[in-house]
Design a protein around this nucleic acid. Sequence first.
DNA 1: TTGCGGCATGAAATCGATTTCGTCTACGCT
DNA 2: AGCGTAGACGAAATCGATTTCATGCCGCAA
Lengths: 325, 325
Amino acid sequence: MATIYDVAQLAGVSPATVSRVFNGVGVSEAKIVAVRNAAKQLDFTPNRAARTLRRQSSEVIALVIPDIENPYFTEMARGVEDVASEAGYSVVLCNSDSQIEKESTYLRIAMAENMSGVILAAASDHSNLDEILKTGRPVVAVDRSTGYDIDGVVMSNRDAGRSATAHLLETSHRVAYIGGPENIETAADRADGWRLAHRDAGVPVPEDLLRFSSFRVDGGREVMEELLALPEPPDAVVAGNNLIGVGAIQVLTEHDLTPPRIGVAVVGSLPFTTLSPSAVTVVRLPARHMGVTAARMLLERIRGDVQPSRTVVLRNEVQAARPRR
Amino acid sequence: MATIYDVAQLAGVSPATVSRVFNGVGVSEAKIVAVRNAAKQLDFTPNRAARTLRRQSSEVIALVIPDIENPYFTEMARGVEDVASEAGYSVVLCNSDSQIEKESTYLRIAMAENMSGVILAAASDHSNLDEILKTGRPVVAVDRSTGYDIDGVVMSNRDAGRSATAHLLETSHRVAYIGGPENIETAADRADGWRLAHRDAGVPVPEDLLRFSSFRVDGGREVMEELLALPEPPDAVVAGNNLIGVGAIQVLTEHDLTPPRIGVAVVGSLPFTTLSPSAVTVVRLPARHMGVTAARMLLERIRGDVQPSRTVVLRNEVQAARPRR
DNA sequence: TTGCGGCATGAAATCGATTTCGTCTACGCT
DNA sequence: AGCGTAGACGAAATCGATTTCATGCCGCAA
């Protein structure tokens, strides 16, 4: 690949001038033309490693998510990417696999590569951001908060759980809840919403129907089986995220209880479901929008914004199942 | 962040020695210990930009895929990532969105960042790899071939289409095919398989039931609607990829024709489907395995392997629907 | 005419790790 | 004892772009 020196030589100027042409300050028209021609002729692309080394920052942001196979996070990634690439930044997607160690490896890489910032959907609430924050790089939390005083974009998980549940309580008596790991904030909050909905309805909270699992299809399957095996099984179920929903519905289908035969509400969209769209109550989460918002906030910080840290809470929207029976 | 000079000073050695400690050649035990201690004390992480600049190559590989929201590609990404991170490489996931321009932007970035190699699921067969190949960086094609003489990992698309179709022909007469864009090799090959299966069965090929669309849910929906509106609609349908399958099944469900009421075969897995697993014939594609294989091949090339280019063809496995009726 | 501000430009320093090259020490062998 | 060699190690060059600093030139005002 051609370097800035090659271009300089061909254009008959100094390397400094070439650099200035590409970074736009004080160069005479004639030289600008000469340099651009030379650059085109040599098919010159500036070496990013060199620029990054000198500038101490690269136009790259890291997006660290816990599960790249979850459509919720890929949708979020799209949002981030659209905003970032619009602004000339590229996005490096890192899959932490919900493991703190992998997560910190990626954070270290982000520092070592001088990336300009990080958007983090934390693997757990024990994520360690001390080091990266010490470098002064901006970090924005999405989906889950971190316990650090940084910008964040979350949604109202309590409301999401609450409205999903409320919907089912209109027609069902025993509404179970299958959530993600109890130590993950979003999972606990949604479960709280489930409790609140019961109180709102003036119904006792059936704590025996509250189960925590993993945010994965397996998790939904296992717990759904357990619930169906109860002496008095639930007549409706709230799934704490999209994957749990998929697992639960799979099990229900295998037991010939495909919704809407039994009430199901899912916190999160089911982009690849093949059910009739009205069979299940879906609380749509603003995944893309969260990504967009987080990316915008991060870019502001990168540009030097120093206001106190903010947390943006986005709203969800409920897409009701058609009333049953 | 601490630099190699800080470490050198604290350890009482030269920067060169520090570098050697971390790259493992000829340093006395005493100094190794001193350097490691100093490094730990200062929490030293080598600056990647500097290393990359000097080495002319970074331990990063780019994975360029056409649709990050398609579980097929994310599964592939997992395979790539597992192998790469095992070998100490990080993976940068780039979403070309099936657009050649975005794709070449990412390829340029890969060059400018001195990444060690690229795994590419090409956006189309017009992808331009001239420049990146000129730099000597290895490129491995996955899923789709490129027209360049480079390593590739594909699967037998013709067989996939063929066996999906064959299965349906056992019980159905009019088997339609909904494929991706005709100009994408994989789509065309699978359609060929559909034709072959008809010939195998000694049945005329119903060309009027062959439709090309996009590899997306919408595509499947649109074409399925068209097919159902035919004077003589098909009694079974083959979906050319997972997303088309989802779209088609959605439409069928809305028309109260949920499989297995009508025969459906899908080329590709439906990871988030909520159907009973036996309702649909699925030709499982070795997505993860393709990623793993591609990553291994790429690493070999990065390490300097110079054998002539190879193309690996992986097999699929059919997961039959339970016989109907 | 002299002087000063401002602008275009180039030379050279800089970012931080790697690597070449040369020096020095120690050890072994004749 | 003298010589050769290998290994440890530091000085300095290097990667390529950016940026500081210095220089020279022009124009305008005194």
